[in-house]
């Protein structure tokens, strides 16, 4: 297992470097905005571009980019969106708002989603199952921003239960802050709940009809005991990667939801960096999410072995 993990980490590093280089070159290949020749500011912008080395060979620029990160953990300064500011500080400063909303969201969506899935599976082919399954399909078909607008309209505007926007400040665990982020949490949750419900129901339905479940019942276990101890554990081989995915998703913001509820998070940062050709912000967010994604893949793969002892990593047999 250890050797396997090391091997994967090495491959991961290679993939990371290739993606980083590709992104570094691709973003620089996008044409810079054409500057109006009659605008007196054009001269300064062109001189600054030259001073920043934008006209140097890509590999020369890439080498300096890597060198600054490795030797000084310096990801550079923003040249467009947050002019003159350290992009690492900007990114890290915006991450908590995204994380807190996503964290609250998954804290209740996972148990609710799995619970509803279990209920639907246990009540298969009853009105409860039909209701849950139909609702799941409806909910999963509607994009989350639609819920966001509906929730904002109903709960914030009509019922006035919550503020329209996330509260300002960094008191993320205050009551006022929690109240202000309930609408985005709800908006993010419906789709996730539906996803877990559907997966859990499908897996559990299949497992519940297995022969070992019959054996479990015949040896004297109650239905609840058999379901929790045997059926659910088998289902988790499929569900756990989804849970991991959700936790990793904590770090990635939703462009639309964050926009609607004014969450000062990282959602949209990458897209804005591409649109604004803010190279350093784009590279930092790209590297960050690439690294997270690759690490998550590794963790999920390794987790299979813990959930299901029948799965062995790195085995050549």
């Amino acid at each position: 297992m250890f050797k396997y993990a090391l091997q994967r980490i090495f491959y991961m590093f290679c993939v990371f470097m290739i993606i980083t280089l590709m992104c570094f070159i691709l973003i620089r290949m996008l044409p810079l905005p054409v500057l109006p020749p009659e605008d007196p500011h054009t001269k300064v912008v062109e001189m600054r571009r030259e001073a920043l080395g934008y006209n140097e060979p890509y590999l020369v620029q890439f080498w300096l980019f890597l060198k600054n990160i490795v030797t000084d953990w310096n990801w550079g300064l923003s040249e467009k969106l947050y002019f003159g500011q350290d992009v690492w500080k900007i990114f890290i400063g915006k991450l908590p708002a995204t994380m807190i909303v996503n964290l609250y969201s998954i804290l209740w969506t996972i148990p609710v989603g799995i619970g509803l899935g279990v209920l639907a599976a246990l009540k298969k082919n009853t009105w409860i199952d039909y209701f849950i399954s139909t609702a799941t399909m409806v909910v999963i078909s509607v994009p989350s921003f639609v819920y966001a607008f509906l929730i904002q309209y109903l709960l914030c505007y009509k019922l006035q239960w919550f503020p329209f926007l996330m509260k300002g400040g960094t008191d993320y665990f205050s009551w006022a802050m929690f109240k202000s982020i309930v609408p985005p949490i709800l908006s993010l949750s419906f789709g996730v709940i539906a996803g877990f419900t559907r997966t859990t129901r499908a897996e559990l339905t299949e497992v519940l009809t297995s022969e070992f479940m019959l054996l479990a019942r015949t040896k004297g276990l109650t239905k609840a005991q058999a379901t929790v101890r045997h059926a659910l554990r088998n289902c988790f081989v499929v569900i756990v990667p989804g849970i991991f995915g959700e936790f990793i998703g904590i770090l990635g913001g939703s462009l639309i939801i964050e926009g609607i509820f004014a969450i000062p998070g990282v959602g949209g940062l990458t897209l804005n960096a591409i649109n604004g050709l803010d190279y350093n912000i784009f590279m930092l967010s790209t590297c960050f999410y690439t690294a997270i994604g690759l690490a998550a893949g590794l963790v999920v793969d390794i987790s299979y072995g813990f959930i299901d002892p029948r799965i062995r990593m790195g085995s050549k047999k």
């Binding site: 600054r48 001073a51 920043l52 080395g53 140097e56 002019f83 003159g84 500011q85």
Partner: peptide
């Protein structure tokens, strides 16, 4: 800031 071309000035003002 050091750049591929030398140094360039920025400000956090």
């Amino acid at each position: 800031t050091e750049t591929a071309k030398g140094n360039v000035w920025s400000s956090t003002y």
